[in-house]
Structures are given as C-alpha cells and as structure tokens.
C-alpha cells in the first residue's frame, strides 16, 4: 500500500503521515509509507526484522528527519519509548521520573512523579535504583517517562521484547488503560500474536514497504487460504508476506 487515503475521521486524527521515505546511504529503509491514527486507537506496526519499523517510529518521534514525506500532529506532542529502556540505572525510580519531568518542564514535578508511580504500580519501589528492577518494571518506567509530557500519541518500539509472559500481561494492561483514556498508542512488534491480541489495526511493513493497513480480520481475509492446521493468524501473515515476495 502507498499513502493511504485520509480516513473519513481525518479531522479527528491524532497523527497522520504521508509518503514517508528514509534512506541510509543506498539502502532504502522506508519507502513512501503513510497512515493515520485516531485518538485512543491502538495501532500495531508489524513486520519481520529489518522491515523499517524502528525507522518509521524514529521519524514520527522526530529523532530522524525523513528524506521525503510529512507528518501531521494536530493534537500536539508525541511521546517516544525506545526499545531498550532509556533510563539511568544508578538513579532510583523516583529520581529518574523526577529528572525527566524537570527536563520536560512539567508544571507540577512532584505531582506528576506521584501520578506516574501510581500508574506504573511501582510506588513501593520508588527509592530502589532502577538497575535493580526486573526488565518488565524497567520497561514500565521507560514507558512512564515517555508519558511524562502527557502526549496525545505514544510510540512504543517493541515494548514487550525480553519480558516474561506475566510481565507482558501487566505491561499490556497498563497500555490498554492508556488507550482507554484517549492516548493514541502506536507500537511495533514482530510478535504477530501480540498484535492480534491487542491492536485494533495493523500496519504491515516489509523491506521498507507499507504492505497493508487495516484490521486483523481484513488481514486474514487478504491472506491466501492455507491448510486446516495453519488457519492461525501467524501463518496467514507469513503466507501474506510470501505472496508479495517477502
């Protein structure tokens, strides 16, 4: 798919991108990708490794400049949560939150820190150094830091990588609650089942190309039929990619 036509609910879109292209030297990491997402929507960007998912998020976050295309953010800031926890392991949970709240210049630093401690459920561990926390808890703080500026859109790059199933469950609980409060959440994953379970819509990337933009059901329908034993979403996805030469 190339730049998708603006959705009917375009005026209400929290984020909208058109014709995004990014090259690294000769390599085209992203070619003419576009989409839009509404407030409170959970959008998964899926695709194999090297498909361009991280590159897309870094363009949306403003970390990199696109070579072509444009991004509209009618409702303000985006929050970005990198794949690896970006926090200081020698600072405590509260100190990390406080530092980034100050750098974000939020009005009520202490109030915001308390709110985030509440939302992450890490209030009891506020004075522990972040490095002593489990990967799952570090990821929650990582996300909480991304939320400090109360962004309209939250970008999560492979948020559940490296977490055990229980940690994943609690992470998604947290993310779903965010979306429930109206934050648009765009997350990347190469775990198809995760996208199937939590995302309302999926954007499929492969070799920098946007191949599909729609609901899970629509992706199922678009994939060629397989055998009875391979009717699950994952194999449907693989067949979908194979049919398009990826």
């Amino acid at each position: 798919m190339t730049a998708s036509p603006p959705a009917p609910e375009a005026p209400a879109a929290a984020i909208e991108a058109r014709g995004l292209t990014k090259r690294f030297g000769d390599r085209v990491a992203l070619a003419d990708v576009g989409f839009a997402a509404a407030p409170g929507e959970l959008l998964a960007v899926i695709g194999p490794n090297g498909a361009g998912k991280t590159t897309l998020l870094s363009l949306l976050a403003g970390i990199r400049e696109p070579d072509a295309g444009e991004i509209h953010l009618p409702r303000g800031e985006v929050g970005f949560v990198p794949q690896q926890a970006a926090l200081y392991r020698r600072l405590t949970v509260a100190e990390n939150l406080r530092l980034f709240a100050r750098l974000e210049r939020v009005d009520d630093v202490e109030g915001t820190v308390e709110r985030m401690l509440g939302q992450t459920g890490l209030g009891e561990r506020r004075d522990d150094q972040a490095g002593t926390l489990s990967g799952g808890n570090q990821q929650r703080i990582n996300i909480a830091i991304g939320l400090l500026s109360s962004p309209a859109v939250l970008l999560l790059d492979e948020p559940s990588t490296g977490l055990d199933p229980r940690q994943r469950g609690r992470l998604w609980e947290f993310v779903l609650a965010l979306a429930g409060r109206g934050t648009t959440v765009i997350f990347t994953t190469h775990d198809i089942s995760e996208a199937e379970r939590y995302a309302e819509r999926v954007l499929v990337l492969a070799d920098g190309q946007g191949l599909f933009d729609g609901t899970i059901g629509e992706l199922h329908a678009a994939a060629p039929a397989g055998g009875a034993e391979s009717s699950d979403f994952e194999s449907a996805f693989v067949r979908f990619l194979a049919e398009r030469g990826h």
Binding site: G62, F80, A86, F100
Partner: peptide, 13 residues
C-alpha cells in the same frame, strides 16, 4: 549505554 542519549536529545536538550 543507558540509551538515554536519543531520549534526551529528541526534544529535551
């Protein structure tokens, strides 16, 4: 090493 560089320089400093 702490991955904080991108986060800091994206919009904070």
């Amino acid at each position: 090493e702490e991955n904080a560089f991108a986060r800091l320089t994206r919009s904070l400093v």
